Structures are given as C-alpha cells and as structure tokens.
Amino acid sequence: MTVSADRLPVAAAESGVPAPPPGLVVVGYFDQPPGYRIERPRGADSWLFTWTTGGRGRLRHGSGETGAGAGDLVVLAPGVAHGYGVEPGARHWQFWWAHCQARPTWRSWLRPYDAGEGMYVVTPTPDAVHGRVEAAFRRMLADARWTGTEAPPVLAPGEEPVAVAHGAAARELALCSLEEVVLLTAGTARTQPPRPGVDARVRRAQALIDADPAAPHTVRSLAAHVALSPSRFAHLFTGQLGRSPMRALREARLRHAARLLETTGLSVERVAAASGFASAPHFNRAFRERYGTPPGAYRTDGPMVGT
C-alpha cells in the first residue's frame, strides 16, 4: 500500500507533529524548501533514520544538535524529544528517511557514532558508497510495497515518494535494505583516518587491531609491524590515543564479541575463543565490566531493550 504524507498513519501525541506508530516500516524521500520543520516534544515510538542527498538539514535530539549534509546518516532513537528541518540559510534539504523498529544488531555498528541521548551521527562516509546507499533506499521504497506475490515492484520516476510496508514479508525485505544502509555507512565511516596529528605508525597499529582483534597481538608484535621498539611503540601509542595498545586490543575484542553475540548463535565459549580471549571466565568478567551484563544476558535481552 502506498500512502502520501498527508495520509500517513500516525501515533497520538500531546503536541507537535505525530510520528508513525511502532511496528510499522515507513520510508520516504523529500526535497523540502526553507521553513520546513518537524517538532516532536515527546519524540517518537520508532527509530528515525535520515540520509541526506542534497542541501542541508538540522536535527535536534534531546539537548544535542547536528547539521546534516550530503552523505550524512543521522539516526534518532525513540522516546527523546526531537525536531528537524531545513538548516537556516540553506536553500533546501533533500533526504531519505525511514521510521521503523531498529534491528538489535544495528546498535553495535552505530555505537561508535553515538552523539549522546540516542542520536547517532554517522559521518563522514566516502563518496564511493553514496550511490549504493541511495540505491538501497530506493530498493527499500520499492520493497515496502511488496504484496508477497511475484517480484517486488520497480519504481517509476515520479511515483509517490512515501510507502508503508504492511505485510510481514515486505517489512523484513525493507529492513534488509535499511540494514545495508547501516552497514555501508557505519562500516566505511569507521575506517576514516583518526584525528589529524596521530602518528601514521599508531594508525597502522590500530588498523591491525581493528582488522583482526582475535589475532594473538602483543606489544612486541604490533611494534614489529610498524618498525618501532616495543617500549617506544607503547609510549607513542598510549600518548597519542590515551590508552595502551593492550587496552585498545581488549576493547576491540569486546566489541567483536558483542557483535558475534548479536548476530550469531555461537555459544558464549565459542564467542570468547573467536574474539581472542584465553578463557570463558576471563571473557565473562571483562564483558560484564564493559557492558554491565554477562554475555548470555546480553544476547537474551539485546542491547536495545525497551526500543
């Protein structure tokens, strides 16, 4: 079923512009002029994803605020007052948007871009992936209209720019396209070079850790990769990144373990081994310290409980 914005199903709200009710997957594409503004003092019951393709937008979430230009993905979690519109002084804001219940696995990809209070600002994303991200949104718009029979429709130019996925199959198919958006943007933005001034050898060592956190890295092996003595390497790495190489390795292993718990059915013991931990008890202690819950409960409850 295709709906226009003025017939979009809405949830009750005390004031401001209502949001779609939870459980729906709604996707659309807007090109709005100056003056366009949405305010939701109570937030929404669903997550909001926006991907800017042109112009400039401005989004507020709780006490945080961010601008959005071409290639920026901004995600707003439920339950927090928010508002968004064309940035003052901009000629327009051209953007894709989607309201839905986010899949639990997405949180680990978005976590590095948490700007506070449930706002995630994923930037910068390389120009090389922009076309594929937009293609994923176009596919999401088409898939949301799928009836579950034959193939999903192919959109023709000028078709209604808003769609609601009503059937279970259409919802899941549309969410698969949105998951591609999250992976493409968070995965590529995460690999951008660190802040200016960080030594290239430190960047290479961090990249080695991030690429394979389960590998048996040591200060000595990492130092050898970047042609430094172990003592010089440890001093330089800690001084520039604010944490020791082994602390950085532990954090990378825990992030990797959390992602495995969210996305696979591997036992806790196998997750521990696949993440580079020597023993399950050591892994359990480290994981509880980092995430506030043991691995088994993290998998059962999910990292997005209540959303």
Rank of each mutant, 00 (worst) to 15 (best):
R204C: 08
A168Y: 00
P157H: 03
A144C: 10
G64M: 02
L141A: 14
A165I: 00
L141N: 10
R204S: 13
V121N: 10
A98E: 09
A189V: 03
E117M: 06
D72M: 06
A163S: 13
P78S: 07
F95I: 01
T105K: 13
R138G: 15
L141K: 09
G67F: 04
M140I: 03
T147A: 08
P157A: 09
T105Y: 08
R203E: 15
L155K: 05
A144E: 05
P126E: 11
G131N: 05
R171C: 06
G187T: 14
L110T: 07
R111N: 06
A136E: 11
P161D: 03
P126V: 09
H130L: 11
A170T: 09
G85C: 06
Y113H: 15
R138Y: 12
G118E: 04
G67E: 13
Y113G: 07
L110A: 10
G64E: 09
H82I: 00
Q101T: 15
E172W: 12
P126H: 10
G116Q: 09
R190G: 15
G167L: 03
V181Y: 02
D114S: 06
S108K: 06
A189Q: 07
D127K: 10
T123W: 14
M119E: 08
P104V: 02
F137A: 03
D114L: 03
R145W: 04
V198D: 13
T123D: 12
Y120P: 06
A136Y: 11
G85F: 06
P124E: 07
V133C: 02
G71T: 03
G116N: 07
G158F: 01
W97M: 10
H130D: 05
R190D: 14
G62H: 10
W96K: 09
V198Y: 12
A165M: 01
G71F: 05
L175E: 12
V86G: 05
A90H: 04
A168C: 00
R103V: 13
A68C: 11
D199S: 14
R204K: 14
Y120F: 15
A205F: 12
D199P: 13
T149Q: 12
L73P: 08
H82L: 06
R139I: 11
A90C: 03
A189T: 03
E134S: 11
R195G: 11
H99R: 11
V121G: 03
Q206A: 14
E159K: 00
E65N: 00
E150C: 02
R107Q: 13
R145H: 04
T123F: 13
G197P: 11
G62D: 10
R190E: 14
A128P: 02
A174Y: 08
P161G: 04
C100L: 15
V198N: 13
L155N: 09
G116E: 09
V80L: 10
